[in-house]
């Protein structure tokens, strides 16, 4: 189970990185095509979708690296028991909010499909397709939060992905 979940977070993170590369490729294509006199409609819209995929698909992966920021001032100044309780409450709260986000993200993509919602730009993309990245990414974030919540409830320490926290940029 652990191996599968970690694989899921990493897979989602890898796809997010592809989204980042896609953003670069789409914006660059837009720049290069102009002087060549080629009209490639929709590169700007595709860049936006690729960026969205990058941000949403990385949600759980970033969470499991401990890089979504929060104020841990109070957490750090409490004793181990109170700290565990606070951790549990913030995870539970996060799970509720992320649950709503995931639910509505899935609903948005589903409804875009049902409405036949099409982008208004030159790209004319059926919107449910790019919105899948939000649906998938937020659901994986929800899974990651439930994962941590369950472990905390059982009294175990939530696992970070290997390699997390080794960023050299950190001043500490």
């Amino acid at each position: 189970m652990r191996a599968f979940l970690d694989f899921l977070y990493r897979l989602s993170g890898a796809l997010a990185a592809v989204g980042m590369v896609g953003t670069l490729v789409m914006v660059s294509t837009g720049i290069v095509s102009r002087p060549l006199g080629i009209y490639l409609p929709g590169t700007d819209d595709y860049a936006g979708y690729a960026m969205a995929a990058c941000g949403f698909l990385a949600l759980a992966y970033t969470f499991k690296h401990g890089e979504h920021i929060r104020v841990s001032l109070v957490l750090e100044r409490t004793g181990p028991r109170l700290r565990r309780a606070l951790e549990w409450f913030s995870l539970a709260g996060a799970t509720v909010v992320a649950g709503m986000l995931a639910w509505h993200a899935v609903h948005l993509a589903w409804e875009s499909h049902a409405f036949g919602d099409v982008s208004q730009g030159v790209d004319a993309t059926p919107l449910w397709i790019p919105q899948l990245s939000m649906a998938f990414g937020t659901v994986v974030l929800l899974i990651a939060l439930v994962d941590d919540l369950v472990l905390t409830t059982l009294g175990r320490t939530p696992a970070r992905l290997a390699g997390a926290g080794a960023e050299a940029a950190r001043m500490e």
């Binding site: 953003t23 969205a52 941000g55 993200a105 939000m134």
Partner: peptide, 24 residues
């Protein structure tokens, strides 16, 4: 109700072209 507004707002800001400069 928060409903779809939550997803529409989050989707809108994160898929908008003007933001692409930030991740790059």
């Amino acid at each position: 109700a928060p409903g779809d507004g939550l997803a529409v707002a989050v989707w809108g800001v994160n898929s908008s072209w003007t933001l692409t400069a930030l991740p790059l």
